Simulated scan of single mutants.
Amino acid sequence: MPLPPPAPRALQHTRTVTCRGYKRDDGLWDIEGHLTDIKTIAIPLKERNDGWVPAGEPIHDLSLRITIDLDMNIHDVASSMDLTPYRLCPDITVQYKKLIGLRIASGFTRQTRELFSGISGCTHLLELLGPIATTAFQATHKEQLARIEHMPDVKPFMLDNCHALNTRGQVVKQHWPDYFQGEQIPAELIPAEPIPAKELS
Rank of each mutant, 00 (worst) to 15 (best):
residue 100 I to W: 01
residue 65 R to S: 11
residue 27 G to C: 14
residue 105 A to M: 07
residue 32 E to G: 10
residue 38 I to P: 08
residue 106 S to L: 05
residue 69 D to A: 09
residue 110 R to H: 10
residue 35 L to A: 02
residue 58 P to T: 08
residue 91 D to K: 08
residue 31 I to V: 15
residue 95 Q to P: 03
residue 66 I to R: 05
residue 109 T to A: 11
residue 43 I to R: 07
residue 33 G to R: 11
residue 106 S to V: 11
residue 69 D to C: 09
residue 94 V to A: 14
residue 101 G to A: 09
residue 46 K to R: 12
residue 46 K to D: 11
residue 106 S to P: 00
residue 30 D to W: 04
residue 26 D to V: 07
residue 67 T to L: 01
residue 40 T to K: 05
residue 100 I to P: 05
residue 75 H to M: 02
residue 53 V to Q: 12
residue 36 T to G: 06
residue 99 L to H: 09
residue 72 M to L: 07
residue 56 G to K: 03
residue 53 V to H: 09
residue 67 T to Q: 10
residue 59 I to T: 09
residue 75 H to Y: 05
residue 51 G to D: 10
residue 55 A to M: 07
residue 37 D to P: 06
residue 106 S to H: 06
residue 63 S to P: 00
residue 29 W to M: 11
residue 67 T to I: 04
residue 84 T to L: 02
residue 26 D to G: 11
residue 69 D to R: 04
residue 96 Y to E: 13
residue 43 I to L: 12
residue 109 T to Y: 03
residue 91 D to W: 00
residue 57 E to K: 13
residue 51 G to Q: 09
residue 61 D to N: 14
residue 46 K to G: 09
residue 21 G to S: 07
residue 107 G to R: 07
residue 55 A to Y: 04
residue 38 I to K: 07
residue 48 R to S: 13
residue 37 D to T: 08
residue 85 P to E: 03
residue 86 Y to C: 00
residue 32 E to F: 08
residue 63 S to Y: 00
residue 66 I to F: 02
residue 50 D to R: 09
residue 27 G to R: 13
residue 64 L to C: 10
residue 41 I to F: 12
residue 98 K to S: 09
residue 32 E to C: 15
residue 26 D to N: 15
residue 62 L to C: 02
residue 85 P to F: 00
residue 64 L to G: 09
residue 76 D to K: 08
residue 27 G to D: 13
residue 100 I to T: 11
residue 45 L to H: 11
residue 67 T to R: 10
residue 79 S to Y: 00
residue 40 T to H: 05
residue 27 G to V: 13
residue 88 L to M: 10
residue 65 R to I: 15
residue 38 I to V: 15
residue 54 P to F: 06
residue 73 N to F: 06
residue 99 L to C: 04
residue 22 Y to L: 15
residue 101 G to T: 08
residue 31 I to P: 01
residue 69 D to H: 07
residue 73 N to E: 12
residue 51 G to E: 12
residue 53 V to P: 07
residue 34 H to F: 09
residue 27 G to H: 14
residue 22 Y to G: 12
residue 84 T to K: 04
residue 69 D to W: 02
residue 68 I to H: 03
residue 93 T to C: 10
residue 24 R to K: 14
residue 56 G to S: 03
residue 57 E to V: 15
residue 39 K to W: 02
residue 82 D to K: 10
residue 56 G to R: 02
residue 72 M to E: 06
